[in-house]
Design a binder for these strands. Structure first.
Lengths: 265, 265
DNA sequence: AAGTGTCAAATTTTCGAAATTTACGCGAAC
DNA sequence: GTTCGCGTAAATTTCGAAAATTTGACACTT
């Protein structure tokens, strides 16, 4: 509990109530970018954001600048902001480093984690499985909820790694990884195999079997990325190198592209 | 040439002229924090910064928020900003990751770097050695100048690693490492042994001997950190609780609180 | 056609002041 | 002597509008 100095970014559950408008806006904006509410490469006009989040110029810009530093947003000279593009290349990079760093973090946590860490992991896993059964929610909300808890579960696993910097790097990579996954796979179906993977990782961690846990985790990470890549190549339109985000008139693109409209309320 | 999407942070030389006030303020503020112009843990009042940098509220706050994300500044709820503290523990963490990640980056660059990369490295080294001979400057300015080129040299070495994320992580770590070094060693004397280390690393890299280069680089990084730690324990005032970090024996005590005065225009 | 220059609209950046919130001092009560 | 309240001062956050910059269109020339 002394290694959490950083990033209110990924906290969920009894998250500290966001106190300033900037913090709140940051969290919302980040969520909306990661969840694909904004398209990759899209220009974000502060005027739009002001209307969307009902705040003034300052909180918007302050939040945007933090996201620039996190790599989710890019700021072009005096020409405003854009959502970061998606490139398959980058997904590979992210996946490699996730595998490297998260496995290392998990090993360290397993080596040194105490009972409190175990409790955090078990609790996070429990919440994750609970949330998977949740019904009666708008699909988008359900996805958001699941992703929140998914992130929390992973983060809990690493939370006892003892290295704030490692934790921070994992935090960034997880976030970006999630964005790729959600962009490429319009809806993350919560297959039971994923759940099984999580359980296996947790079991290995609780049994303090570092090698096995790391191995399972690496598979888990690569599996997710492979799945995303498979979808990506199937419908190559997303964001990247295709200059114009021209909606190709095919039937397949109809349903998958342009997955969701901005915040229906 | 395609891996530099991130961070105007560490560019030097023909850096793109900072266009917005926010960017310029960010660069200046970062430099002043890293160089120790602001003390660790010190509260930074936006009013003071406005006067110091002669800009309005927005650029100040926008810059501060980016630094929060980089870990150089912390934002306490609605209670303003503080310069991040220094902890010997964290220096160890940073050093470990620098050794790991920078060596990896160097290996990759050596494996795949092209002639342009070689040219960048050689040029950066040349500038660094040139700057070391520079005389007739205010010591602080000389230090700033040297550090700029030192950073550039390291960054050039890794620039061909092919992984934007790795590069970004190195960028962050180098920055923080520099802050620790400069905080602990009030004035970095440019010993000829440091220069020799740089030359050895460069030679190994140009000879495409990855193992040797990585080994030298790791020594270089750890050497710098050890030096800093030695100074740190000699005058324990800096930052926070000295905790119980051993690492380097030496006489403690000898209170030389307060290494340098803030600001000074 | 292609290039150029100008002007207006749109957008971003920046400022300064209002609105909130926190910090501090001082007296009263226990 | 300490703790609690309360009111004022100081600082931070937030807003909205002014200033500066970019974008796009249109006419004009080559």
């Amino acid at each position: 509990m002394d290694n959490f100095e950083w990033g209110p970014a990924l906290r969920v559950g009894q998250a500290k109530a966001h106190k300033t408008l900037t913090e709140e806006t940051l969290a919302r904006l980040r969520r909306d970018i990661v969840s694909g509410e904004f398209e990759a490469g899209q220009k974000v006009k502060s005027e739009d954001l002001k209307k969307r989040y009902q705040v003034g110029t300052s909180p918007i810009r302050e939040a945007l600048f933090q996201l620039v530093s996190e790599g989710l947003v890019r700021s072009d000279g005096q020409r405003g902001f854009r959502v970061a593009e998606l490139r398959q290349e980058e997904l590979l990079d992210i996946t490699d480093w996730r595998a490297r760093l998260e496995c290392e973090a998990l090993r360290r946590a397993i080596a040194t984690g105490d009972m409190e860490w175990e409790a955090r992991v078990v609790a996070a896993f429990h919440r994750l499985t609970r949330v998977e059964g949740e019904s009666g929610l708008d699909p988008k909300d359900a996805a958001d909820l699941w992703e929140d808890h998914h992130r929390s579960f992973h983060f809990a696993l690493y939370s006892a790694c003892g290295s704030p910097w490692l934790l921070r790097f994992c935090e960034l990579l997880i976030q970006h990884g999630e964005r790729y996954r959600r962009a490429y796979i319009s809806y993350p179906r919560i297959s039971s195999s994923i759940t099984a993977e999580h359980k296996a990782i947790m079991d290995a961690a609780m049994a303090r079997e570092g090698d096995r846990a790391a191995d399972l985790l690496e598979r888990h990470i690569r599996h997710a990325a492979d799945l995303a890549l498979a979808h990506a190549t199937r419908r190559p339109a997303l964001g990247t190198s295709l200059a114009k985000k021209r909606r190709v008139g095919g039937m397949e693109s109809e349903q998958v592209l342009k997955s969701r409209a901005p915040a229906k309320r």
